[in-house]
Design a binder for these strands. Structure first.
Length: 230
DNA sequence: AAGCTGACCAACCGCGCCGAT
DNA sequence: TATCGGCGCGGTTGGTCAGCT
């Protein structure tokens, strides 16, 4: 037995919204509000759209104070930190970034940020020679919190690694059986591509010891052995 | 100039949650 | 307590565009 459709799919328009539809929806909501019922709203507003589609359009595009365009380094930082701690809970992450929508952040992560964070080895290699290093505390990353995004067997702890030269700090997060590494070699106001070098290093079990971390770290072609800080 | 490919992003889909009855 | 309907979320799809061959 299937799920009851939320609307009559044969009689609703799909695809991109026209400016006329946008205006109708915007004017209606500004005048009457959503009425707490998105399903009934399109009919009242004279729109041949599914209520869910209206809701999405409003929340992601028409709503006041929506911020579009480039993400700032600070926003990148927040997204990375939160993703490391809570996983892909985009709505929670969006709540920390005023004006950004969960859809926006999700798209940004999937198309740009993830690639920067995961494909970073080359970036890190070049950045190590082209940037002055300062002994600075790690990027502010809060401790991992309990989250349904973590598997029950996850390490669920975070480890801050300081390199032998004391010049760099890195943080490793266990996410669903892989180690997600974040690092900082500069202050937070530098373009993300220059200081986040992280990568996902697979391991088979959550019971990973410090020296194994160090070995992974060394193998990832970054500055070698150091000490772990907790 | 035409075709191909990848990046980007708006929008859709289906599921889980939760409140109302 | 069980059922139903709506909402919100995260994953996925598909259209568009730019860059490359």
């Amino acid at each position: 037995m299937g799920r009851t459709p939320c609307c009559d799919k044969a009689n609703v328009k799909k695809g991109p919204w026209s400016p006329e539809e946008d205006n109708k929806l915007k004017e209606f909501i500004e005048k009457y509000g959503t009425g707490g019922n998105w399903i009934a709203l399109p009919h009242k507003a004279g729109l041949k759209r599914c209520g869910k589609s209206c809701r999405l359009r409003w929340l992601n595009y028409l709503r006041p104070n929506i911020k579009h365009g480039e993400f700032s380094p600070d926003e990148d930082m927040i997204i990375c930190n939160l993703f490391a701690n809570i996983g892909s809970r985009w709505s929670v992450i969006a709540a920390q970034l005023p004006g950004r929508t969960d859809n926006d952040i999700k798209n940004y992560w999937n198309t740009k940020l993830k690639k920067r964070v995961l494909g970073i080895t080359s970036t890190a290699t070049t950045s190590s020679s082209s940037h002055e290093r300062i002994n600075k505390p790690p990027i502010q990353m809060s401790s991992s919190s309990s989250s349904s995004s973590y598997s029950s067997s996850s390490l669920n702890t975070s480890t801050v690694f300081q390199t032998a030269s004391l010049q760099q700090y890195y943080k490793m997060e266990d996410i669903n059986g892989s180690v997600l590494m974040f690092g900082s070699d500069h202050n937070q106001n530098v373009d993300l591509g220059n200081y986040i070098f992280g990568g996902v290093l697979p391991y088979d079990h959550h019971n990973v010891y410090e020296d194994e971390f160090a070995q992974l770290f060394t193998n990832s072609s970054h500055e070698g052995a150091g000490k772990f800080m907790y």
